[in-house]
């Protein structure tokens, strides 16, 4: 099963100008592998994830194609997209505490997915409790009766995962699943995803800036910066032999590798540099980097978008 993104561009029109959040991105993701999209905040990863589900705000202009097993999602009507969402591609949204409805019991929010799939109330109740138990809740009934604000961040995260898994989708897009969680809970997220992956055989697209999670959980990594894909590779290759200077900078900034922060800041979307978008921060920038945008070079199982590899 394949999710294929071809030349995707997402532009937000705002009063202060057009914001190109995703810029000519082409990617093919297989459900055989767990794919991670990494990059700093504001690199367009979340927008990319939401555009697959057609869940961007109304001021977003999307061009390019997104194909799910050859079926084009970009041309579907809202009604048709509703049938894809949840059942074929599910989302684990970021900020678990606010991504659950504060006024509805957690159990009801999970049951709703089973109900949408056509199950009776009794069946959906039963399946909800089973699912909660499977997701390592020791008291499923108590959790089902609780409201989101009565649960911890990690529990909310697992409840969100339960909502995503409930309709047995073929794909799960997890948007910043470890954001704002402490180290122990981040490990729980990893364990949960591992279990879901093994038990339900879903394709995972993990959008994260948590490099440790990406390295542990993902088979394949996509590095994004300023709405562009700068490098792709298998997780092992990428972390052992990073090619793009940006990837090298990201990895060097990891705590156990010296925590060397990268110089400079990501440019504003409304004011992007000419040539290679990374050149103002790149230690190896040459004259050509300032003038021309580099093309994507494929080598081995990966690709890189840098003049240093022409």
């Amino acid at each position: 099963m394949e999710l294929c993104i071809q030349d995707l561009c997402v532009n937000f029109s705002t009063p202060s100008g057009t914001i190109p959040a995703v810029n000519h991105v082409s990617l093919t993701v297989s459900s055989q592998q767990v794919t991670g999209i990494i990059g700093e905040t504001g690199s367009g990863k979340s927008v990319l994830g939401l555009s697959i589900l057609g869940l961007l705000q109304s001021n977003a202009a999307v061009s390019g194609r997104i194909l799910l097993d050859g079926r084009e999602l970009t041309g579907l009507s809202q009604r048709e997209l509703c049938a894809v969402r949840g059942r074929e591609i599910a989302l684990v949204a970021q900020n678990p505490a606010t991504s659950l409805n504060p006024g509805v019991r957690v159990g009801r929010q999970i049951e709703e997915v089973f109900r949408l799939a056509g199950e009776s109330r009794a069946e959906s109740r039963k399946h909800t409790l089973e699912l909660l138990e499977q997701l390592a809740f020791s008291q499923p009934e108590r959790v089902a009766r609780a409201y989101p604000f009565e649960l911890s961040g990690g529990m909310c995260q697992r409840a969100l995962t339960a909502i995503a898994v409930a309709a047995r989708p073929r794909w799960i897009i997890a948007d910043e699943p470890t954001k704002g969680l402490d180290a122990v809970v981040r490990n729980q997220v990893y364990d949960t995803f591992r279990m879901v992956r093994e038990h339900y055989h879903v394709g995972f697209l993990v959008i994260t800036h948590d490099l440790l999670l990406a390295r542990k959980f993902c088979d394949r990594i996509v590095v994004m910066y300023c709405g562009r894909v700068l490098e792709t590779n298998t997780a092992r290759e990428l972390f052992e032999h990073p090619r793009h200077p940006y990837t090298r900078g990201l990895i060097a900034s990891l705590p156990h590798l010296g925590m060397k922060p990268m110089a400079g800041f990501a440019p504003a979307f409304t004011d992007q540099p000419a040539g290679c978008v990374f050149h103002p921060r790149c230690p190896h920038a040459r004259e050509i980097c300032r003038r021309e945008a580099p093309g994507t070079v494929y080598c081995g199982e990966g690709s890189v978008c840098c003049h240093g590899f022409d």
Partner: peptide, 15 residues
């Protein structure tokens, strides 16, 4: 505009 609406949309619920 709140986050939980995104979750509801991702479930496949209509507006």
């Amino acid at each position: 505009g709140k986050n939980y609406v995104l979750t509801a949309q991702a479930k496949g619920l209509r507006r």
